[in-house]
Design a binder for these strands. Structure first.
Lengths: 115, 115
DNA sequence: ATTATATTTCTAAGAATATCGAAATGAATG
DNA sequence: CATTCATTTCGATATTCTTAGAAATATAAT
């Protein structure tokens, strides 16, 4: 499971790349990520689980939320590849939009109470 | 099709990584690659086609053979990522075995006549 | 030209993946 | 302790991927 191909598979999904890019800036809870990315909660949860099993992210409880962040120390190969991929992703309009949303998102507003 | 995620998907397969690694040393024809990797010819052909469509490799006719080689100039992101991945792949025993086989393989012997 | 052969394309099967909604879990709040 | 709410798990479906063998293509050799 620490084969290069497994790492590559873990990051070969647009949704997961968007999640990793988000977590680059700051840690976020599942409902924040869900709100920003716009997929079903269960889908986001499954992506997070996959990234966690690949040791690319970690989680930590915070009251009623679970915050996810990039794993540290990072997987050695990921640490080498990610800065290059990350930079390239910034040209992606979807990723840029995600970043804007992330700057404004407030978990007290979006989680739970309807919208 | 020049999105980072498409490049990552193209290289997220052990067979395709093995092919890229082989072509790093020298260009090879389809039957040589097939002999070394040990998958069906049609499977190798389909991997080669995918890598070619992703602009990671190129082909060139050579008598009755078609030689494949790494594309040059390489895709910019691939050019950055590949040396890092390639180095890591050298720890893979399968990749090491491929390299040995590639050094010995002779297309006049293996192509066509039975074995 | 006929044959041999290297490669691709077609067809099909099985495995893996992405997705969602509903149900379950589990912790925090009142 | 009952309720609320964030998150995960389950069940189900649709899609994509990997693979192989057979048929088709095209080129070289005889």
């Amino acid at each position: 499971m620490h084969e290069p191909v497994d790492l590559l598979k873990a990051i070969s999904d647009h949704g997961r790349l968007r999640i990793l890019k988000l977590l680059e800036t700051r840690s976020l809870c599942v409902c924040e990520i869900t709100e920003i990315i716009g997929l079903a909660t269960s889908t986001i949860s499954s992506h997070l689980n996959l990234l966690k099993n690949s040791r690319l992210i970690e989680d930590e409880k915070d009251g009623k939320w679970i915050n996810y962040r990039l794993a540290s120390p990072a997987d050695p190969l990921f640490a080498q590849l990610w800065p290059l991929i990350s930079k390239r992703l910034e040209l992606d309009p979807v990723v840029a939009a995600d970043k804007k949303k992330a700057a404004q998102v407030d978990r007290y507003k979006i989680c739970g109470n309807g919208k």
